[in-house]
Design a protein around this nucleic acid. Structure first.
Lengths: 202, 202
DNA sequence: TTGTTTTTTGTACGACGTATAATAATAATC
DNA sequence: GATTATTATTATACGTCGTACAAAAAACAA
């Protein structure tokens, strides 16, 4: 296991299996709904033992996460180019959130368990754990804005990003729980709150 | 059941039972730790069937919630008087958070499951559900600040309060997950972020 | 090939939370 | 005060989650 190319092969195979598991799970979710699909069913459909499934995806919501992460990864490069045309900082953030909102509207049925999962899992605070797609993107956009002087720099970019992300998740949760809200509007208001704060302008 | 005094008696008895259940549960938690105590054990210790316990406390964390709610209710009147001496808005909020931080430090071991529970339960967005102690207090402090012109009024007090509360929970979660942080400091910084936003001051 | 390490498997387990039919307790009606 | 209707409680069974672990299989190194 000292050979690096062997280790890479191993890792590539592992990633393939992750995709395989997440894909079969996704097919079941679409057919029967997230709640109705049990982990055993996913394992069976993927021709894998329960324990193996759990090893790679310790909770059911992690299957959603993998899928979303991959989807985001696929469109991110193009998105990134489009954002580059905008001023760093708030403008890019606003555009990103607007696009994200459209995507969320299509994933609405899977979003509630996912948002809950993200909110209650503390992994994002573990410095050693790899940041997920959204985490990294938020962090990047914040850091850019900070560098451009659009965001305050007396607080670390990581903390600002966390702050933004919680507000983001909270907005999603509210949108999911109440009817008749426009997600794009709510996201725009959220960004306004996060950037300007709740204090009255003097 | 049309007699209001009968209904009140009923309700009083129900509340007593809630307290009884939460108290016995709390005793077990202190003896064995939250995770180690099963719901069946709580039910047995309270001389009640499992189903009854679940009827009143649908998830284990709700037992913590009841306890915390009651504790807060006990000290709130005095706290409220003390806060009244301060200017409405940010000053009161800052003081309240500082006191809350001291209390949280004593409850640290129970706080992680509780914070996770609060974050992932969407009940606070259900307009029909009664707001919990902290919810109501945040909402009140925000509304006071809004009335005094310290907080912006182009956004509803409810939304501002939600924003604050998520930031609050996020800060708790971070404090619980990382070592060596001063909760009071983190709360102060959080309030600064919430009030002033992440945008650079012009 | 042989020996070693890592992964997968199968299965059992404890706890959560749900559901339900039978039973007890409480309120309302006569 | 006895009777009926309502509501709360009980006991129990159930499905699922997520964990644990020993046995088997696969991948790797020699």
């Amino acid at each position: 296991m000292s050979d690096p190319t062997q280790a890479n092969r191993r890792e590539r195979k592992r990633l393939q299996q992750l995709d395989h598991l997440a894909d079969t799970a996704w097919a079941l979710f679409e057919a029967q709904g997230f709640e109705a699909v049990t982990m055993e069913a996913v394992a069976a459909a993927a021709d894998v033992a329960k324990g193996t499934l759990y090893k790679h995806f310790p909770v059911k919501e992690a299957l959603l996460r993998h899928r979303f992460h991959r989807e985001l990864g696929a469109v991110w490069p193009a998105l990134r180019d489009e954002l580059a045309a905008l001023a760093p900082g708030r403008a890019r953030l606003a555009r990103f959130l607007a696009m994200q909102a459209r995507w969320c509207e299509q994933q609405r049925s899977y979003l509630l368990p996912y948002v809950r999962y993200r909110l209650s899992s503390a992994e994002r605070f573990d410095a050693r754990s790899e940041r997920s797609g959204m985490d990294r993107i938020f962090a990047g956009l914040i850091a850019e804005g900070q560098a451009a002087g659009e965001f305050r720099s007396d607080v670390s970019a990581a903390l600002l990003a966390t702050h933004l992300q919680f507000a983001h998740l909270a907005t999603l949760l509210r949108w999911l729980s109440e009817d008749g809200l426009s997600l794009a509007d709510e996201m725009a208001r959220m960004l306004d709150l996060v950037c300007n704060g709740i204090g009255a302008r003097p």
